[in-house]
Computed example of a mutant assay.
Amino acid sequence: MNALSNEFDLAEATMLSPDTGTAGEPDPALVTEQWEAVHEAAAAVGVLAQLGRETIAPEVADLPQRAARKGGWHYAMAARGIDDIAAFMQPGLRALLALTAKGQDTTAAALTLWREFHAARCAIGELVETA
């Protein structure tokens, strides 16, 4: 297996729980930043899974903004879901990178993490789209 160098720097990722604003709802700017960070992590996982980097559709990219406009429990649950994705992507990616650094094949594990990410992302999208 060839060693993959990654462009994903965990030090630059915002993988923390979004702060809540004065109304008790998460800050939309922080939720958007976290959404972008989990997609950067997913891009690194996609490379490790031998899938390449995904092109993000506009409706996926602007999901946090749509959720914030919807407000209420839809937004709160979407923000929590993004936080949950971050909670499993960060340690998952760290583990994959550690194994890669040791020269081990991480394709199957990366593909599993990739699928979990997509399932969670779809669930958040469906939540935001519900009436």
Rank of each mutant, 00 (worst) to 15 (best):
T20G: 00
L4W: 01
D84L: 08
P91G: 12
Q90W: 11
M1P: 05
V60C: 08
T32D: 05
A44K: 00
S17C: 07
E25C: 02
T130A: 15
P91Q: 12
L16Y: 06
T130C: 14
Q34V: 03
R69Y: 13
L127Y: 10
E129A: 14
A78D: 07
P26S: 10
L30N: 00
T112V: 14
D9R: 09
E12N: 05
E12A: 08
G24D: 00
R121S: 06
C122F: 07
V31M: 02
A131C: 15
A41W: 09
V60Q: 09
A120M: 08
A67C: 14
A11Q: 05
A44D: 01
L4D: 04
Y75K: 03
Q50W: 12
V60K: 09
E36Y: 08
R94N: 13
L97N: 04
P28E: 02
T106M: 07
L113K: 11
Q90D: 15
E126W: 08
T55P: 05
S17P: 09
V128W: 05
P91K: 14
P91M: 13
I85Q: 01
L63V: 10
P18S: 03
E33G: 01
F8E: 01
Y75V: 01
A101F: 00
L99H: 12
E116P: 15
D19C: 02
H39R: 14
A43T: 07
T106E: 05
M89F: 04
A3F: 03
T106V: 15
